[in-house]
Design a protein around this nucleic acid. Structure first.
Lengths: 95, 95
DNA sequence: CTAGACTATCGCTAATCGTCGATTAACTAT
DNA sequence: ATAGTTAATCGACGATTAGCGATAGTCTAG
């Protein structure tokens, strides 16, 4: 659980996830271009996200096609929404 | 955004948040007892959570009464639920 | 005034993280 | 077989984090 949050706890990783969310389909090395860091650094971030189960990489030689794997972050999303509930806030948010 | 996730990216901090969620009302030094770390360490974790706006501390001399402040983590909760949507999963989860 | 309870802050150390360039690996095309 | 493209891995570096004990501050109780 903490591991999930930790994996998301870096601007570059949030950037990547947002990118994947926006493009819907998977992307290859364009991610490197987008985030503006060295290829090895991006690869490392991707590795961390994959290790946390947040993204998956499908190999399409010589590229790799990344996409989101939402299942894994259910527990975290759940905690978050319970926390939103806590405040008595109207949680129309989930839409 | 990443800062929020980062603040939650530690087991002790998740523990504290879960505790606050469970007890509903605020707690004092019981947190130290619960998480089983040194007082100074817990104080530091609390400081981090406060800095991220996730918890608030109300001073009740000589105690401090902590509670959750869900408002701040709306953006993160939002991203998470958008990611859950992504997979085409049925998001009856938020309940 | 003294002692007690609770929290915050200050060094300090060990461990982890983020970043990079360089290298290696795997496949495609010539 | 050679060159090109893309990803992953390695080794190194500085920066940040996590943990602790010790100390200081602020109130209450005696």
């Amino acid at each position: 659980m903490a591991a999930l949050a930790k994996a998301l706890g870096h601007p570059a990783r949030i950037h990547i996830v947002a990118l994947l969310l926006e493009k819907q389909s998977c992307i290859g090395c364009d991610i490197v271009d987008e985030v503006g860091l060295a290829q090895s650094t991006v690869s490392e971030h991707l590795r961390i996200l994959k290790a946390a189960g947040i993204v998956t990489g499908e190999i399409e030689r010589p590229r790799v096609c990344y996409s989101l794997n939402p299942d894994r972050l259910r527990p975290l999303a759940d905690l978050l929404s319970r926390m939103l509930d806590f405040g008595g806030a109207d949680e129309t948010a989930t839409a």
